[in-house]
Amino acid sequence: MVPSSNCYELLGVSTSANNAELRKAFRKLSKQLHPDTTSMPSDEATRKFQNVCEAYDLLSDPVLRANYDLFIEKENNLITQKKEPYLKDIQPVQFSKSIGVRRPLSGGELFSLLLLSISIFLSLALGVFIAFLRGGNLNFTPSWLM
């Protein structure tokens, strides 16, 4: 995560920004801060560019963004809890990026799997047909076993 900085402030967007606004802000900042296109020292530009990339990755994923929002809310509550001790401590939900990421196969992917299985079946059938035409024996013993 981005150290000591709010991801929303880093990208310059509000907490209610949608994905289009996030992407627009990220593209603008990445053009300004990319080490190949800026006049900043390369170490500083690389560090800032990585922070912007990490902030965008975090906020563009809906699950991670919800978890981050809970984390920010918890921090704000801890600050106000010193003033108002009756507020309970909010625990952020821990999510894993790998859980629930499986998506259904698209039509193009299903079609390519169909073509792959048909080509394997036809190759096998062609090999057996050619062996039959040559009069080959289907009970072939490998030479390394003899």
Rank of each mutant, 00 (worst) to 15 (best):
L115C: 08
P3K: 15
F129L: 12
D61N: 08
H34M: 05
I99W: 11
V128M: 10
S106P: 12
S106V: 11
D36H: 08
L114V: 10
L124R: 04
L29R: 04
T80E: 09
N6F: 07
S30K: 05
R134P: 00
A20P: 02
V13C: 01
K97R: 10
L145H: 08
F26E: 02
L29A: 01
S106L: 03
K28A: 04
R65W: 04
N18G: 13
T38H: 02
A17F: 03
I72Y: 14
K88M: 14
I79E: 13
G107T: 13
P41W: 10
S14M: 08
E109K: 02
Y56F: 00
A125Y: 12
V13G: 02
N6M: 02
L10I: 07
M40I: 12
D43N: 06
S14H: 07
A55M: 03
L105H: 14
P85L: 06
S14F: 03
E21L: 05
T38N: 11
V2D: 04
Q94F: 13
L138D: 06
L113D: 07
L133E: 09
E9M: 09
E75N: 11
E73A: 15
N137R: 07
N19M: 11
A66W: 08
G100P: 09
F129K: 08
S117W: 15
R103V: 14
Y56D: 00
F111D: 11
F71K: 13
A17Y: 01
L115Q: 09
N6G: 01
P142N: 07
I72H: 04
N67M: 14
F26Q: 03
L58T: 11
I120K: 03
G127D: 13
T37E: 05
Q81H: 14
G136F: 11
S16D: 03
T37P: 05
M146Y: 15
Q32Y: 04
L133I: 09
A45S: 14
K97H: 10
S143K: 00
A17W: 01
E21V: 00
D89F: 09
K48T: 09
I72N: 03
E84R: 13
V2L: 06
R47G: 04
G108K: 01
P142L: 13
S112R: 15
L33K: 02
V2H: 00
Q32S: 02
N6K: 12
Q91P: 08
A55P: 06
R102E: 07
I120A: 08
E9K: 05
T46L: 06
I118M: 06
K83V: 07
S143W: 07
L22V: 00
T15H: 01
D69P: 02
L11S: 03
A55Y: 06
A131S: 15
D61P: 11
D61A: 01
W144N: 04
F121D: 11
A45D: 11
A66D: 11
S5T: 08
V101H: 05
S4A: 12
S98A: 10
L105G: 05
L124K: 09
L133G: 13
S112F: 01
N76C: 13
I120N: 06
F140P: 14
E9G: 04
I72A: 08
L10R: 10
N51G: 07
V101Y: 15
Q50S: 15
M146F: 15
A125L: 14
E73G: 14
G127E: 08
D43P: 01
V13H: 01
G100I: 13
E21A: 01
L59C: 01
C53Q: 05
